[in-house]
Deep mutational scan, measured.
Amino acid sequence: MATGGRRGAAAAPLLVAVAALLLGAAGHLYPGEVCPGMDIRNNLTRLHELENCSVIEGHLQILLMFKTRPEDFRDLSFPKLIMITDYLLLFRVYGLESLKDLFPNLTVIRGSRLFFNYALVIFEMVHLKELGLYNLMNITRGSVRIEKNNELCYLATIDWSRILDSVEDNYIVLNKDDNEECGDICPGTAKGKTNCPATVINGQFVERCWTHSHCQKVCPTICKSHGCTAEGLCCHSECLGNCSQPDDPTKCVACRNFYLDGRCVETCPPPYYHFQDWRCVNFSFCQDLHHKCKNSRRQGCHQYVIHNNKCIPECPSGYTMNSSNLLCTPCLGPCPKVCHLLEGEKTIDSVTSAQELRGCTVINGSLIINIRGGNNLAAELEANLGLIEEISGYLKIRRSYALVSLSFFRKLRLIRGETLEIGNYSFYALDNQNLRQLWDWSKHNLTITQGKLFFHYNPKLCLSEIHKMEEVSGTKGRQERNDIALKTNGDQASCENELLKFSYIRTSFDKI
């Protein structure tokens, strides 16, 4: 039985969820670079991206490699990797027998973001014989899940209580170790020597080791999670996991709180800001991140802002960003909400898709409305799209047979046209069989910064309504002859009103 693990408890099935942008060198404390989270699957090609990484700022997932063999891993080693800020997950990587050479110096898994409450997941690794993470000293947050690894031993010899604050939620089941077939031998045991430290858990006094050649490092209890030197002297209180010299914040392997210019500090002093819960960055760093993602459509890219001495992905609820200094300031009234469309555009074809934009005031991208039916549609669209004030790209209304009016965009005031449909149009209306009105132009103002209007096959939309939009939106004169079809717009509506004058002759039985 794995020490510190839980057996036999019912657990939810383990679901495996399925960018080499360097964020800056980590400095003297770390020998390499800070790398983003990685999802490495199918083959070993991307694994080489770990070569210079000291910190993975995010998670590391290595999974679904069915053609790899043990010899493929023999020359692979990433000794610079010290810390993973989120979680480490391995799933069905064939041929991998140990992690001792792959990650010989991995010391800390912070667990800032977890995989279903777990910071370390080893699942269905069919050839893994031992973990071998002999320098792993601290899992700051989260638990361990090690399950269905039929060859995995050296679990009962690990004292997880020396690595985690609590072992109650560890789930370590259905491994070879369960069948008591392992016969784990710690260093020196074969020669009758006791080389590794022994600890007591559940009444068992057991030597602690990761492999037959690597003991588990056990520091004096007084050192807590700070770690200790090879001689057993406690590291500085700002260290986490390990250090090369005692009581020196510049000799830590990793930091308990924050890293700044080669030393570990309790908090980031001005003019620095907390970033990702582990390091200090200056304003320029946060500003660069903001600008890199301002026009990016890459998933996970955030326009970072500053709030409460932190550089964070977005302002919290009730705050909006001051564009001059990136500071989050309290909103006066309802907060603006910028919604970034991942692929640059979004099609609204149902109430469900409209709900995804609920509360958005600025759309960074283009909207395509293609709704053919739905219950209580006008009210639903207004509830979900009615706060949109600005669209950076274009607005396209296409084959939306259920629409009679666009009044559900009740606050839309600006279409920038930074991206144009077919390279020309910022407003595009095609084949809307029941569209009769755009907006009530006596109450609604709309500016279209650039781009043209396109109207074709809107049989109940009168040309007068379209011409009014040209005047109000500032697009009059931009359109070419064929942009607004004269014969297919309003051709099934009563669009022309003329005053009919009647004269009559009164007659009676005795007068003409």
Rank of each mutant, 00 (worst) to 15 (best):
H28G: 01
P31L: 05
P31G: 14
G32M: 05
G32W: 06
G32A: 15
V34S: 06
V34M: 14
P36S: 06
M38L: 10
M38P: 01
N43W: 05
T45E: 02
H48R: 04
H48D: 10
E49S: 15
E57K: 04
L60G: 00
L64T: 10
P70M: 10
E71L: 04
D72E: 02
D72A: 08
R74H: 15
F78S: 02
I82F: 09
I82P: 00
I84Y: 00
I84V: 04
D86I: 01
Y87Q: 00
L88S: 01
L88M: 05
G95H: 13
L96C: 13
E97K: 13
S98H: 03
L99S: 01
K100F: 09
D101T: 10
N105S: 09
L106G: 00
R110M: 08
G111T: 00
R113S: 00
L114N: 15
L114G: 01
F115W: 04
F116L: 09
F116T: 02
N117W: 03
Y118Q: 15
L120M: 11
V121S: 10
V121T: 07
F123S: 11
M125Q: 04
H127N: 04
H127A: 14
H127R: 02
L128R: 00
K129H: 06
G132N: 15
Y134G: 13
Y134P: 12
M137N: 11
N138G: 05
R141Y: 04
R141W: 06
V144Y: 01
V144S: 04
R145L: 10
R145E: 01
I146C: 04
N149V: 02
N149Q: 03
N149E: 00
N149A: 02
E151Y: 13
E151V: 12
L152S: 02
C153S: 03
Y154N: 03
A156E: 06
A156V: 07
T157Y: 02
T157Q: 09
I158T: 09
W160Y: 11
S161Y: 14
R162M: 13
Y171M: 10
I172G: 01
V173S: 11
D177H: 10
D177P: 14
N179F: 09
E180T: 04
E180R: 08
G183P: 09
I185T: 05
G188D: 06
K193S: 14
N195A: 12
C196W: 01
C196Y: 02
P197F: 05
P197K: 08
A198R: 14
Q204D: 13
E207T: 13
R208F: 15
R208S: 10
S213T: 14
H214K: 02
H214Y: 03
C215Q: 01
V218G: 05
V218P: 06
V218R: 07
P220Y: 04
P220M: 06
P220R: 04
K224W: 03
H226S: 04
T229K: 11
E231P: 14
G232C: 11
L233C: 02
S237T: 05
S237A: 13
S237P: 09
S237R: 12
C239P: 00
G241S: 14
G241T: 07
N242V: 12
C243R: 00
C243H: 00
S244Y: 11
Q245P: 04
D247T: 04
D248A: 08
R256K: 08
R256W: 05
R256Y: 10
N257S: 06
N257M: 03
F258Q: 04
L260Q: 02
D261I: 07
D261G: 04
G262Q: 03
G262H: 14
R263H: 06
C264M: 00
V265Y: 13
V265N: 02
V265T: 09
V265S: 07
E266S: 14
T267S: 10
T267F: 06
P270I: 12
P270N: 15
P271V: 03
P271S: 11
F275T: 04
W278L: 05
W278P: 01
V281L: 06
N282L: 03
S284I: 05
Q287P: 08
Q287W: 11
D288F: 15
L289C: 12
H290T: 06
C293D: 02
K294P: 12
S296Q: 11
S296P: 04
R298W: 15
R298H: 04
Q299Y: 04
Q299A: 09
G300F: 09
H302T: 12
Y304E: 04
Y304M: 08
N308A: 09
N309Q: 14
K310P: 02
E314Y: 08
C315S: 03
N322E: 00
N322Y: 07
S324F: 02
C328K: 01
T329E: 02
T329I: 08
P330W: 07
G333T: 06
P336I: 10
